[in-house]
Nucleic acid binder design. Structure first.
Lengths: 125, 125
DNA sequence: TCACTAGCTTACCTAAAGGTCAGTACCTTA
DNA sequence: TAAGGTACTGACCTTTAGGTAAGCTAGTGA
């Protein structure tokens, strides 16, 4: 495991101090990178899905956390909710334009994690 | 806030179920997307830095969390630690090759968050 | 002799994230 | 008549992430 001397250029905005402590980006980043936030965004990057689909796809999520996470992402304007007044209820969730912008950056990251995870986690203990 | 009908193609690997619950990628993702993990990786993407530099750049981090986060990232082979046997001690941290690979994906994400955060967080309450 | 440095570790505690389970509304199917 | 599906909410409890503060090491400068 050798150190490598190159550096990825950083946006000047956070060249010093990464970014300040009370900064809104910290909050947004917390929403996006929360345990279930990532998974929901990734799942939705494939297109509109129902509540029950999301429950299955984000394996292990509780209904409480699904509701909470979706609400946060909706408030942030990343996810849009479409409820149809039918019985039994049917609610579809999808990414907004902004959500797709984000998922375009998130998918490669998660894909990388997926590809490297076994190697990394198993060899690190 | 309109829904948009396009979809980002997902790696087939997690086309179904995003990825399984006990999967190593969940663990790795937790390390990477932890509150301080992201910031440390971003800070190091600019190049080697000392302990005390990192403390300053990741504004608000406690010594305990800095140590813990660095250890995790080191165990995962993303960060390398170079301690010089001098007094007072001097320890440099840098990204490994794998760490740079990752930070190349992480930086655009964080930059996006930085650019959109104010807009999103302020208008969502 | 004392304080001061940098890079930690440890013990203790709090706050927040998250889990479990029960309940609800309304209709359909067995 | 009873059970089941769907999309939730709320109460309550546990687990974990993270904060605070003190201590340690081994030298150097005052």
């Amino acid at each position: 495991m050798e150190a490598v001397p190159q550096a990825v250029p950083l946006p000047l905005a956070f060249a010093d101090g990464v970014f300040p402590a009370g900064c809104p980006s910290r909050t947004l980043l917390d929403h996006i990178t929360s345990k279930w936030g990532v998974l929901i965004l990734i799942a939705l990057s494939e297109g509109e899905q129902r509540w029950s689909d999301l429950r299955r796809r984000a394996e292990g999520i509780s209904e409480k956390m699904l509701a909470q996470t979706l609400k946060t992402l909706e408030r942030d304007g990343l996810v849009s909710r479409n409820a149809q007044p039918v019985i039994p209820p049917r609610v579809d969730y999808s990414l907004t334009e902004r959500g797709y912008e984000l998922s375009g950056l998130l998918v490669p990251l998660v894909a990388w994690a997926f590809e490297n995870a076994e190697d990394i986690i198993n060899s690190s203990r």
